[in-house]
C-alpha cells in the first residue's frame, strides 16, 4: 500500500489531509513540523511526502533539505502544500529538492491525481 507522510503544523490541515488521503486508499503518517517529520522518517519509509512550508522549529525548506540529505539513492517525491505562491519560494523549494508545489486550499481530486502521478 502506498504510504504517505504528511507534515503540517496545523492540526486542522493534518486532519483534512489524513481524511482525504485515507479515503483515497493511502496509508498516512502525520508529523507536526520539520523536526518531527525527520524523526518520523527514521522509522517509516513513505512512498511520498507532503509538507507545509511555514512551520515552527524546522520549516518546509529545511525539512526537504534534511530528507534529501539523508536519502541519496532513491529520491522520495516530496510535494509542497502551502498557501505561499511566491515564485522565489517555489524556486527555493525546488532547489532544496521538492518534487512539486500545490497551493492551499487544495482540491481533493487534484491532489490525489497528482499523487498518483508521482508514485509507482
Amino acid at each position: 500500500m502506498t504510504r504517505i507522510l504528511a507534515v503540517d503544523d496545523s492540526k486542522t490541515m493534518r486532519c483534512m489531509l489524513q481524511a482525504t488521503l485515507v479515503d483515497a486508499g493511502f496509508e498516512v503518517d502525520l508529523a507536526e513540523d520539520g523536526v518531527n517529520g525527520l524523526e518520523k522518517l527514521k522509522n517509516t519509509d513513505p512512498d511520498l511526502i507532503i509538507t507545509d512550508i511555514n512551520m515552527p522549529r524546522l520549516d518546509g525548506f529545511g525539512f526537504i533539505a534534511g530528507v534529501r540529505e539523508g536519502k541519496q539513492v532513491t529520491a522520495v517525491p516530496i510535494l509542497v502544500l502551502t498557501t505561499e505562491t511566491g515564485e522565489h519560494l517555489k524556486q527555493r523549494a525546488r532547489d532544496a529538492g521538492a518534487t512539486g508545489w500545490i497551493v492551499k486550499p487544495f482540491d481533493e481530486d487534484k491532489l490525489i491525481s497528482i499523487i498518483r502521478r508521482l508514485v509507482v
Binding site: G34, F61, G62, A65, G66
Partner: peptide, 20 residues
Amino acid sequence: SPSAAPGQATQAVAAKNAPA
C-alpha cells in the same frame, strides 16, 4: 547542489540534534 541547500542542511542537522 544548489546554493541555498547547504545552509538549510545545517539548519536541519541542528534541529535534528536539538532535544525535544
